[in-house]
Structure formats: C-alpha cells, structure tokens
Computed example of a mutant assay.
Amino acid sequence: MYTYLLFIHILSAVTAIVAIMGTPLIMSGVRTTGQAKFGLALQDKLAILPKIGGTLLILSGLGLGFLQTYLFREMWYVVSIALFFVILIIVAVMLPSGMRKQLVLLQQTQGESLPDTYRQSRRRSAWLEGIANLAVFISIILMVFKPF
C-alpha cells in the first residue's frame, strides 16, 4: 500500500507543481491587453491542476504518515505540511482573487496598452507566485533530503 500511495503522491506533486511554476512563465511575456486576457484565461483553465494535484498530494501525504506514524514526529514532514498550507492559501485564495481583479481592470481598458493599475496588481500576483514557488522548492528539498 505504501508504494501505491507514494506513486500517487509523486504523480500529484508533479501535476500541481508544473501548474504552480508555469503560471509566472505564462504571464511574464504579456505586453498587451489582449495577451493579458488570454494569459488570465489560460491560467483559469490550468487552475484545476493544482486543485486536483494538491488535494491528492495532501491526502496521499497524510496517508503515508498514517502508514508510517513516525513521520508525524519528523520535523521535515511537519514543515512540509505547513508549507503546503501556505501554498494552498496563495494558489487557491490569493491568486484567484488577484486574477479576478486584473480581469476587471482589463475589461475596463480601452486599447491594447496595459494600465498601471493592472501592472500593480500583476506585480502583487508575481510576488505571491514567487513565494509559492519558493515554498514548493523548499518542500521538495525537505522531502528529498529530509534534513531534520
């Protein structure tokens, strides 16, 4: 059972992580209102991947912990779970809120030039995406190297 859960855990991590790390790449090339609208629409479609992957990730991770109860006494495991919740708050709550705000700003824009209000909102989203990516990176390090 442990091997199957580990397989699901790794597969779900890849699914969730690719979408989380791909978001900044999609939006970094945006230069016009049309491109920004397309990028936000693409992000909206890709948002299902971290939701499915993240749900399976936490369930399989906790399942692994229940099969190997000593994991709940391992600091790397507890910190990984805490980081997951930071990532979850950013990806499931904060970023979608910013995306909705950005879309409203773009719909009010005439022409193809990106408004300053959009750029400010996008900078906040990019900052949050950076934090989420850093948390993902630290989680991977913790799970692979188990430093403490």
Rank of each mutant, 00 (worst) to 15 (best):
Y2H: 14
T3E: 15
Y4P: 03
Y4H: 13
L6A: 10
L6G: 03
F7K: 05
I8G: 06
H9T: 11
L11A: 14
A13H: 03
V14I: 14
T15E: 02
T15F: 07
I20P: 01
I20K: 01
T23G: 06
L25Q: 08
M27G: 06
S28R: 13
V30K: 02
T32L: 10
Q35M: 15
A36I: 06
F38T: 14
A41I: 01
L42G: 11
Q43V: 02
K45L: 10
K45F: 00
L46K: 05
A47Q: 04
A47R: 04
I48G: 00
L49T: 04
G54Q: 02
T55R: 00
L56W: 00
L56H: 00
I58D: 02
S60I: 12
S60C: 06
L67V: 05
Q68K: 12
Y70W: 12
R73D: 10
R73G: 07
E74Q: 13
M75F: 14
M75G: 03
W76R: 08
Y77H: 07
S80G: 15
S80W: 00
S80V: 03
I81V: 13
L83M: 08
L83S: 08
F85T: 13
I89T: 13
V91T: 13
A92S: 10
M94V: 12
M94N: 06
L95P: 02
P96E: 07
P96I: 02
S97H: 15
G98T: 10
R100E: 14
K101E: 09
K101Y: 07
L103V: 06
V104D: 11
V104Q: 13
T109W: 01
T109Y: 02
E112M: 11
P115K: 01
T117A: 11
Y118I: 04
R119P: 10
R119H: 07
S121Y: 03
R122S: 07
R123N: 14
S125G: 08
N133I: 11
N133E: 09
I138G: 03
I138S: 02
S139N: 13
I141P: 08
I141F: 15
L142N: 07
P147K: 10
P147V: 08
